[in-house]
Structure formats: structure tokens, C-alpha cells
Design a protein around this nucleic acid. Structure first.
Lengths: 187, 187
DNA sequence: GTCTATAAAGCGATAGAC
DNA sequence: GTCTATCGCTTTATAGAC
């Protein structure tokens, strides 16, 4: 039973949990009501647009977290690039619970839900890529190499999450992060 | 609508298309009926267990394709390891339409559908990992390095598919394959 | 702001004619 | 083997009391 946590933030956390577990289509209002502790009436009062509004709110929450915890440090010229990159990988391990939590943006990217949230999904990965590329350029890499490494790292993170979940093995994700860290240092 | 392609193989191809596009939950019998050209009665005659049976048939079809086109060559000691690995990457670009087609096994791994098909999902990636590791060992790498490279490659492929779809950019996947190919050669 | 009751539509699945 | 008609249930969403 949802432990009646009705602050806006807690509701969004509950929503995120349901969408991550069941995907957009599988997240029924019955599941959502149970996870948030709110009845349908309350949910539609808070999110007049229904599930679409709820998912948009969750995505905006995720986006804001990554913006402040990951993208901003990467873009900050006052932070040493190597430090902000290390911090990015630490933040990923934390955020994705060492591989036990899927990336909702990635899940949406793979589903037909993608069409409804195309700009948000696109923007999330785009800003991540731009920020990491900027940090890599600050650490002396060419534009082309920075871009290539960035693409490789984003794929490694998302793929690590997919396979960690397929194997139900968080270690898989953590080893992938370790490999990415080494590769980013070595270049 | 569906161009009345009622051979078993064509039906399974239609099913696969629907599951890839909409996921398991989003693949309604209406969609499935349209894509296969078969009515509900015919579908339940062919798949008495309903959607679960249909998805299982699709997964078995995918599994068989990879087994014969990818895993078997990788395991074949008579084929030079470098050749079977190159062939694996070519097969992936072909099969996933250069990044425009998602990996249904990966999609299922991320969804709560995973629980229903746990063994199949697990087995698919496990046999892939074992086959690639075997090829890498034949090409002279230590057990540990072969395993690490294998994990990195599988993550790169799956992650490349996720982000290529997020950006709607097949080039992303193809560049990731190129990077993996270079890394596998360089080691 | 939260709830219950209810509407209207779509769902997976089945029955039975052909 | 394929179809149509139908069942029973769940779905999203709304209305209205409190």
C-alpha cells in the first residue's frame, strides 16, 4: 500500500517507480493509485492530462536531477574535466542503483511511447552528450575524438543497464562503468 | 490490411514486428490481427496460450536466427576467430537494420515482461556472451580479458540501439559498431 | 484536495458456425 | 483453419458528493 506520501515530490517518486517497473503502457491507474496512495480523483486533479501528464512530470524530474547533478558539473569550466567525469560515473552508479534500476528515458526511447515524448527523450541524451563532449574537449581531446568517446560512453551506460537487468546482475553494470572510467582516463 | 501472408514464418515475422513496435503490453490483438492478416480465432488456433505463446514463438525464432548466424560461427573452432567476430558485427548491422530496429530481447529485458521470459532472455545473452568469449579466447586472450571484452561489446550493441532510437539516428549505431570492431581488433 | 460511483471504450480470450 | 459474435474484465477518464 502506498504509505500516503502526498507531497508533490513524493508523488512523482512513486510515479517514477511505477513507470520504471511497468513501462508507460503497463502502468495502470490502479498501480499508480496504489504506489502514490492517491485515488483517481486526486491524480486527475494533480495531472489533468492523465497518464501523459504524469509521465511528463516524471521525465521533467529526472531531467532536472541530471541537469544539476551531471550536466552542469560537466559544463562547468571551473571544475577539472577529469573530476566532473569521475563524478558523472559515480552519479550514474548511485542513480541507477548500481544497475538494479533501469533508465526510464532509455525505456521510453525503445517503446512507441517515444513518439509522445520525442523532444524530452532527445533533449536528455543530447544535453548529456554535449556536456560530456565539452568536458572531454576541456581535457584536451579533439572535437571528433571527444564526440566519439561520448557516444561510446552513453551507449555503454545504457547497454550496461539493459544487460545487467537481463542477467539480474548489478555487477555487470558496475564492471561496465569501471571499463568506461578506465577508457576515459586512458585516452 | 495485413497482406494475407499466412505461412507460419510470415506470421511470426508479423508478430515480431508488432512486439518490437509496441512492446508486449502495447501489442494488442487488434494490432496483431492487422499485422498478420489473421483473425483472433485463427491466432488462438495457432497459439492456444494467447499472447504469451505468440511472444514465446517470436523469441524462439530470434534465438534460432542468432544461434545459427552468430553463436555457432563464434563457437566453431574451424572458423578463424577474427573472421567470425567480424561476421557477428556485420550480422548485427544487418539484423538490426543499422540501428533502426530495436532488439526485442533487450526490450523484454527492460520491461516487467522479463519475469515471464526470464530464462529465454537470460539464455539468449548468456549464449551470446559464451560464444564471443570462446572466440576471443581462441584468438589468444586470457579468460578474464575475453570476458571483459565480451561484456563491453554486448553493452555497446544494446546501448547503441537504445541511443540510436532515442536520436532516431541509425548512424549512431553504425559508428558504435565501428568502434567495437576497432577495439576488438586492437586488443 | 480527496473520495466513490460510473461511464464508455478496449482488452484478452472463448464459442461456435462454416 | 478461418471467421464473427460475444463474454467478462480492465482500462482511462469523468462527475459529483464531501
Amino acid at each position: 500500500m502506498g504509505a500516503r506520501l502526498h507531497s508533490t515530490d513524493q508523488v512523482i517518486k512513486g510515479l517514477a517507480e511505477v513507470f520504471r517497473e511497468h513501462g508507460f503502457q503497463g502502468a495502470s491507474l490502479a498501480h499508480i493509485s496504489k504506489a502514490t496512495g492517491l485515488g483517481k480523483g486526486s491524480l486527475y486533479h494533480a495531472f489533468p492530462g492523465g497518464k501523459d501528464d504524469m509521465a511528463a512530470a516524471v521525465l521533467a524530474d529526472i531531467d532536472a536531477w541530471f541537469e544539476s547533478h551531471v550536466f552542469a558539473p560537466l559544463n562547468d569550466a571551473d571544475v577539472p574535466a577529469s573530476k566532473s567525469i569521475d563524478h558523472m560515473l559515480d552519479a550514474c552508479v548511485d542513480y541507477f542503483h548500481g544497475g538494479g534500476r533501469v533508465c526510464l528515458v532509455g525505456v521510453f526511447a525503445l517503446s512507441d511511447t517515444r513518439d509522445s515524448f520525442e523532444d524530452t527523450v532527445n533533449g536528455y541524451f543530447h544535453r548529456w552528450a554535449d556536456a560530456l563532449s565539452a568536458a572531454l574537449r576541456r581535457s584536451g581531446h579533439s572535437r571528433a575524438l571527444a564526440r566519439s568517446m561520448t557516444e561510446d560512453v552513453l551507449a555503454g551506460i545504457q547497454g550496461g543497464l539493459v544487460i545487467a537487468r537481463a542477467f539480474d546482475d548489478n555487477g555487470y553494470f558496475e564492471r561496465e562503468i569501471k571499463r568506461l572510467r578506465a577508457r576515459l582516463k586512458a585516452c
